[in-house]
């Protein structure tokens, strides 16, 4: 698609979303908030897994660490949300960097298992420290992120705008990074680590840095979670949440820019839609599974990949017939399957 058209579309979408509080009610805005922090969470996973090829089933833990950090800082220690913002991101990023160290030695399934361990351990921590965190009961945060008085807008609208602005910022950063020297190196490591290494990419350092950045982004989603809900509990950050993020990434399109946003919309609205049809909600996971299988089978690039193909086809059909259109690429193997170079 034309670069300017894409840019205009995104800007238009952002404007529409920003105007939403004037049009729709509080219930819808709460739902939008959830989609926004889910977008950031799926984007964080996409940077690690989609772009860099490192698997994680532990992103719920990075989110949870930052969400609990924020809740404790604001509720028990009198911090402002704004002070907790950089601090909670930093804490999540630090834990992410530590988690990235074993990822240098192990890969694929085993890395997934290590992060799975992280995801499983995290919900136990608040229970272990029940006195401070309320344990399984969860922990409410009394103070809201209040709108500045001079703006004269509702707190709900203000929170939504803050979340939306931060998410848009993250999206822009990811987009810039994708089209840069560092982004290319990150993707090169995913596709051909040995070739990347001999081309001068410090593979080990990059992988740890990506782990830290991704965890920090998940931490931002965690901060957003606490801002939006003013409540945290261990059940908000179970492994199931991580798996949902993976699902959102796969369905939206892993390794794409728009995919995580589409995935987040899916994650929030499909269960709602299922409820609406009167199907037993117990069947939602089965439905997810079915959709996932269909997407992996028919749309390996996810929804975003499918859209890109469609628009490429559209552009090609509008071109004069003698000009070669960029057919959607088939993917022959570029790399040998032997393990040594």
């Amino acid at each position: 698609m034309n670069k300017n058209v894409t840019r205009a579309l995104w800007a238009g979408l952002l404007c529409l979303l920003a105007l939403a509080p004037f049009v729709v009610g509080t219930v819808e805005i709460s739902a939008f908030q959830k989609v926004v922090y889910l977008s950031v969470a799926v984007m964080s996973l996409n940077v690690l897994t989609g772009f860099n090829g490192q698997a994680s089933i532990g992103h719920s833990a990075f989110m949870g660490i930052a969400a609990y950090f924020t809740a404790l800082a604001v509720q028990s220690h009198g911090w402002s949300y704004w002070a907790a913002l950089p601090a909670s991101i930093l804490v999540a990023a630090l834990v992410g960097a530590l988690a990235g160290v074993p990822a240098l030695r192990i890969r694929g399934m085993n890395l997934a298992l290590v992060t799975l361990g992280l995801g499983m351990v995290f919900p136990q921590l608040p229970i272990r420290f029940t006195e401070e965190t309320g344990g399984t009961q969860g922990m409410p945060v009394d103070e809201p992120l209040a709108a500045p008085a001079f703006l004269n807008v509702s707190d709900v609208a203000w929170r939504y705008w803050v979340l939306l602005a931060l998410a848009a910022l993250v999206f822009w950063l990811v987009r810039n990074f994708r089209a840069s020297r560092v982004g290319r190196a990150v993707i090169a490591i995913r596709d051909q680590p040995i070739a990347a290494h001999t081309a001068g990419v410090n593979v080990a350092a990059t992988k740890i840095a990506v782990f830290a950045v991704s965890a920090g982004m998940a931490g931002l989603a965690g901060w957003m979670f606490t801002v939006a809900n003013q409540f945290v509990s261990p059940s908000d950050f179970t492994v199931l949440v991580s798996i949902n993020l993976l699902l959102g990434m796969a369905i939206g399109g892993s390794g794409t820019l728009a995919g995580p946003v589409i995935g987040a919309v899916f994650l929030h609205y499909i269960p709602e839609a299922v409820n609406g049809t009167g199907i037993d909600p117990v069947l939602t996971p089965a439905l997810y599974g079915l959709i996932l299988i269909l997407v992996v089978y028919f749309l390996p690039g996810g929804a975003a990949g499918g859209l890109a193909q469609l628009s490429a086809r559209f552009a090609a059909s509008r071109r004069s017939p003698d000009e070669p259109g960029q057919a959607p690429p088939s993917t022959p193997r570029l790399t040998s399957s032997t393990s040594h170079p």
Binding site: R184, D191, A195, L334
Partner: peptide, 20 residues
């Protein structure tokens, strides 16, 4: 000896990576 390109990057991006 066996190609080691980055299949999901463009030809230009593959070459640019050489200039890392």
């Amino acid at each position: 000896q066996n190609l080691a390109l980055f299949p999901r990057l463009t030809v230009l991006e593959n070459v640019l990576l050489g200039g890392h």
